[in-house]
């Protein structure tokens, strides 16, 4: 069903992501908005990158191009040795389906569709048998700790649970990268740590993770910090001592709950 655009032509020596001189210009009638002004970056397999920067610095624009949802105005984007700029619409769809999992700030789940069906969705667009589809979806939901919420609808789930469903959906087709644009933006601090725990767990299993965040606390869980300013990369540092979410969570008191009950 899927025409494989040479997806398997991976060169083990080349980096997973190789981006050079990426620019993005939005044309709003007379005005031109330069969202990206020449971004070059390499990301290798197994990295956990946190992208930070002020509002409007171009982080989401960058992520959308990484996720093959949008096209750059100029520059090259090579993903696992494939020049993404040369791919057709269908080939890009196949990349989004197989290689990339995207997690959005606003969850972007299909409403009136149960958790398990949301997670099954990417497999409808690839060649997965009906039986395998179900078991893989259950497996993915169990991984994010939602094994007991399979048939809940998004409006019956908390924000943190919805985001976990979205993460389960992003990882169900075994992608090589998960891209997350402010995945904890709508969540409280405890839930944020839980979600980061899931990302760290996935990263430990070899999945490359790139996430955008405004919160330094959240960025502390990543192994590398990239900071954007005015459409350019201002700094790119290794986080020598990332925090471990599973340990942080133990020290977090359940204050919110107690206060709520007391009130």
């Amino acid at each position: 069903m899927i025409h494989d655009p040479g997806l398997s032509a991976t060169n083990p020596d080349s980096p997973l992501i190789q981006i050079d001189h990426l620019t993005k210009v939005y044309e709003l009638g007379e005005v031109e908005v330069h969202a990206l002004r020449g971004v070059s970056v390499r990301v290798s397999k197994g990295e956990f990158v946190a992208i930070m920067g002020a509002s409007g610095s171009g982080k989401s624009t960058f992520m959308n191009i990484l996720g093959c949802l949008d096209k750059p105005t100029k520059g090259t984007y090579i993903l696992e040795g494939i020049d993404v700029g040369k791919l057709s619409r269908d080939e890009l769809a196949a990349i989004r389906n197989k290689k990339i999992g995207f997690v959005f700030q606003g969850f972007n789940l299909l409403s009136r569709t149960s958790a398990i069906e949301n997670v099954e969705l990417p497999m409808f667009y690839s060649t997965v048998s009906n039986k395998l589809r179900k078991s893989k979806a259950i497996e993915a939901l169990e991984k994010v700790g939602l094994g007991d919420r399979l048939h809940h609808y998004p409006n019956q789930l908390s924000g943190g649970q919805q985001q976990r469903v979205a993460i389960a959906r992003s990882l169900v087709n075994d992608p090589s990268i998960i891209l997350a644009d402010e995945p904890t933006g709508n969540l409280d601090s405890r839930t944020s740590v839980e979600v980061m725990g899931i990302f760290q767990e996935l990263n430990n299993h070899g999945i490359t993770i790139i996430l955008v965040t405004h919160e330094p606390d959240v960025a502390q869980f990543a192994k590398r910090h990239v900071v954007f300013r005015d459409g350019k990369i201002r700094s790119d540092k290794v986080n020598t001592n990332p925090k471990i979410a599973s340990e942080v969570i133990k020290d977090l008191p359940m204050i919110d709950d107690e206060e709520d009950e007391a009130a």
Binding site: A93, A94, N108, L109, Y125
Partner: peptide
């Protein structure tokens, strides 16, 4: 439209 966007973001092709 959003539903279409979500489906496309997880790999639906135009023909799907």
């Amino acid at each position: 439209t959003r539903e279409i966007g979500i489906r496309m973001s997880i790999g639906a092709r135009a023909r799907d």
